[in-house]
Design a protein around this nucleic acid. Sequence first.
DNA 1: CAGTATCCCCTTGGATACTG
DNA 2: CAGTATCCAAGGGGATACTG
Lengths: 148, 148
Amino acid sequence: MHEQEGTFMKPGHSKVPAGHTSGAPVCGLTADVCQSVSDVLARVGDKWSLLVIYMLSNQSMRFSELKRSLGSISQKVLTTTLRGLERDGYVVRHVTPSIPPRVDYELTSLGHDVLGPVKALAMWAISRRKDVENARCKFDKLNIRDAI
Amino acid sequence: MHEQEGTFMKPGHSKVPAGHTSGAPVCGLTADVCQSVSDVLARVGDKWSLLVIYMLSNQSMRFSELKRSLGSISQKVLTTTLRGLERDGYVVRHVTPSIPPRVDYELTSLGHDVLGPVKALAMWAISRRKDVENARCKFDKLNIRDAI
DNA sequence: CAGTATCCCCTTGGATACTG
DNA sequence: CAGTATCCAAGGGGATACTG
């Protein structure tokens, strides 16, 4: 239990590789800028984070409330999701040391803030949903013969 | 080579689970809307896709050009990344059947389009980069004692 | 209630070798 | 050149059991 400090430390795939860590910007993107964009996308793009942020955007909720609302998430995953969001400063964790314990989660201003651009992307995704869907159908239809 | 048709079919974690596949919207989000947002985020949030889209936003490029520019990506991963982007309709693949073969990749209008909201998110990520960084430092400093 | 601790599976990404 | 074919390691997500 002591050696896994990396659990919610790094989103993993979000690491921008060494290729352009060296001075040269790729398409006008410097490595660190590129990295911070990746960080946000990786955090918000994982399976549950975005949903959790949405849930908390109206009111703060306690652990069990979140779990119940999300339905099919496991405790472990909800915990790591919340820790990740907490680490990056999107949520705060309020502990009430009672018995049984009570823990509430609340969006920070950063958490509320990120909803702006994320909602814009969401709106785009919704408006272009059919295009993506059609592209997929077309692609899959063309490639299914190769696959079988 | 026939049974792995799922390689670039699904982003994996992007699947919105059964919990709210049933009628009830979560926080005003219906399941399919939620799914399409997840799809976009998962696609654009993987390790290389966003970078590839950025590279192609100025000019079309051939496979080897992309590989060289990205530096540390493997052929396999570049291929699957491009296939994924092609499947979702963000890029098109132009094959010139010469020897040796030549394949060019170009952004579609959908591909150019997604850069809008993505750039907005990128700008946000850049402007709030320090906040995230500070939050992480603070969090890690508080939790390092527990971890060791 | 709000977590840990384990164990397990699957997917992603990478390294290497081979081919039309 | 532009891919496939294999193999491998690491991480994410899930199921279950236990605990302060």
